[in-house]
Every structure is written in structure tokens, then in C-alpha cells.
Amino acid sequence: MTSPSIVAVRTQRVRVPLHTPFVTALRRTEFAETVVVTVEDSDGCVGWGEAPQVWRVTGDSLAGSAAALEGPISDVLVGAAADLSAARLIQGAVVGNRSAKMAADVALHDLVARRAGISMTGHLAELDGHFVGLSGVSVPVMSRDTRSTGYPWDSVLTDMTLSVGTPADLAEAAAARARDGFTTLKIKVGTDAAGDAERVLAVRDAAPGCVLRLDANTGWRADEAVAVLTTLADQDVELEFVEQPVARRDLEGMAYVRRNQPYPILADESVFDLEDLVDVIRAGAADAVNVKLAKCGGITPAIELLEVAKRHGLGRLVGCMMESHLGIGAAAALAAATGIDGEQDLDAGWWARNSPYEGGIGYDGPRILFPQANGLGIEGVLP
């Protein structure tokens, strides 16, 4: 019997209105814009993925992602076997264009999961130690002992981001999100170092039962970061971690911040790929890493990043850009299958007025609910 092959790669642009503007040190947006891709095999099975537009972090645009998917990525996929061997073809098809690679890679994993008749989480757990990463290293995903009773995962917890704003704005938002049931809040800082401590204190007072995380999105200098964080420590503020306090390439500065204040440092923009992660580890610049599919190029490279981080004793978090429910579903499945504890950083879909898809994940407060369906459970884009 002939094995199925990939016969088509199709794209569609989707624009998702947000119910509240999303503001960071790098950008402000009122929409999530993405390129949705489908990969179809010769048996008519279809996998879904998306390429979010992330101008200010990865440099990826809708036009660029669509061109990469319709051109070089489609060129290498069409005619290839409809299995995970095609993942290497995706990563080698074009330089950069990580959002486009994410879309194709997620769609490939979704296709394989659907062909197997299991959920995306189940598919990733089924890799069970024989997954071979892009570097050729065998990467364990989930041990058999852990999943001996089957696939119990029905949800993943996420934090909630508080956009950049005044202390009063942040306090109001923090109280509202606490009422919504969120127990971990990530405060966006980095636009004004002189006022950042006041913002954090306002959130602490407004949501005293919540775990707090900070994210400067590269917005501080090293000395500013140390000053702000020292002030917060003097005020007995408890922080789970401080994310990307300084510029992406300033690993020396990030290591300085790590040494000179008491809070753990989480690398985000500093880690796109395995080479970046190795540089961070060698520099002693971070205690943990935020792995995002749109930064690294999909599930396949993300699995390897998470495993290397684990082997070197770094904490791990699965995060997102401003993806829609499709990309969030893939990232949440990855977090579940790799057994990462705690609240992940996957609130992007919550900001959408509605999911633009038929099927897929849903939100119940801080809980991301997996569909009872094969793959990601996406069946179409709503009109």
C-alpha cells in the first residue's frame, strides 16, 4: 500500500479583533493578525497551523509568511511523505520566517495526529523518547510511567498579562482579572523605569492573592533593571520571575541583572533557537527560558529547546505572541505533553472577542480547555 504524501499547502489571512488593546514596551495592537495554513495529504486528511504577524519581535509579516508558505515551504512539502520526516524540510526551506515555519510545522503535527486518530497532546506524548530533534539528538518527551493510564490532560493553566498603563489602570485590571479567577498575573513594564516600581506595587495591593511576574520586553538598561528590582525587593514584593529585562543581545547585561538583584530571570527575546539558548546558558544570563512557537519555528524545534533547557537545569515556560486559538492550542498541547508544571504564558486567545474557528480550544478563566477531538480539533475558519 502506498504511503500518503502531501498534496497541497493553502493559506488564508485572518484578522481577529481584540476586546481590549494589548500594550507592551514594544507595541500596541487592537487585532491579532495571522496567516492560517492547511496541509492536505493524498488521503484528504488536513492539518492546521498559523503564522502570527510579529513585526517587532521576529520581523515576520502576513505578506512575508504567506509568500514563504506558498513558495519555498510549499515547494519542499508537496510530494513529501505525510509524516514527521517532513519537519526537517520545513526548517531548511527558507532562512528566518519563523512564523511561517511555525504554521507549517504545527499543521504537519496536526495532520499526523489526525491520521492517528488522537489529540495533539496524545500525539506529542506518543513520541515517547524516539523523537529526533533538528540537531539529530533523540529527545524524550513523556515517559511511559507518566502516561501509563492514558491521556488524562483536559486543560492547561495560563497566567494573564496586564498591559502597560498607569498604576491606576493596572490596579483596576489586576482586580478584574483576579475576580475572573486568574491567580498569576504578568505585569508589562519597561516603558518608563522611573514609574515601574509604582505600577508593580499598585498591582500587588489590588490583587494581594495573586502570584506576580514581570515582563520588561527588553525595555530596561541593566542599571535601570537593577534599580527597579532592588526597590521592589526593599518593599518586600514577591515576584516569580522577571522576563527579558534588557535588550535581546545584551547577555552580559542580563547576567549582571541576574547577579545583582534577588529575582529569577526568564529569557524570552534572547532565545529564538538552540544557538541562542546555548549562548544564554554559557553567559549565565538566565534562570529559565520562555519557549514560543513563533520565535523558534514550531513544535519540532520547541521540543528540542525545552529538553536542552531541562538538561541544563533551567526552568521552562511555554509562551505565545498574539496568536489566535489555533496557535495557542498547539502551544498548550506541547506544555501538557512535556509535563511542564505551573501556569504557562498562553493568554493571547483570551484577548480575542471570539474564536475565529469552528472547533479548537476554549478558555474558562485561567484554564485552557482542550477539545475532545483529533489533532487540534480545528474544522474551519468562521465567516
Rank of each mutant, 00 (worst) to 15 (best):
R88D: 14
G136A: 06
A178E: 15
N290R: 01
M321R: 05
A81E: 14
G59T: 09
L317N: 06
T38W: 10
A82D: 11
V226K: 07
A86F: 08
K101N: 10
V289D: 00
K310H: 00
G195H: 14
L326H: 07
A194D: 15
T184L: 05
I187K: 07
A174Y: 14
L77E: 04
R259Q: 09
Y151S: 01
D43H: 13
A168T: 15
R98S: 12
V291C: 00
R114T: 11
W48Y: 14
V228Y: 12
A222L: 01
A113V: 06
T231R: 15
L214E: 08
K186A: 08
A202T: 02
L127T: 03
C210F: 02
V57H: 09
P21A: 12
P208C: 05
G129R: 10
A333Q: 05
L229G: 13
I368Y: 05
F131C: 02
T231V: 10
D83S: 10
Q53N: 03
A202P: 03
P17I: 12
D215F: 01
G122K: 12
A247G: 10
A216H: 12
P167H: 12
V246K: 12
R115V: 04
Y151T: 01
G339R: 00
L124R: 03
G219I: 02
A168Q: 15
R56M: 05
A207W: 05
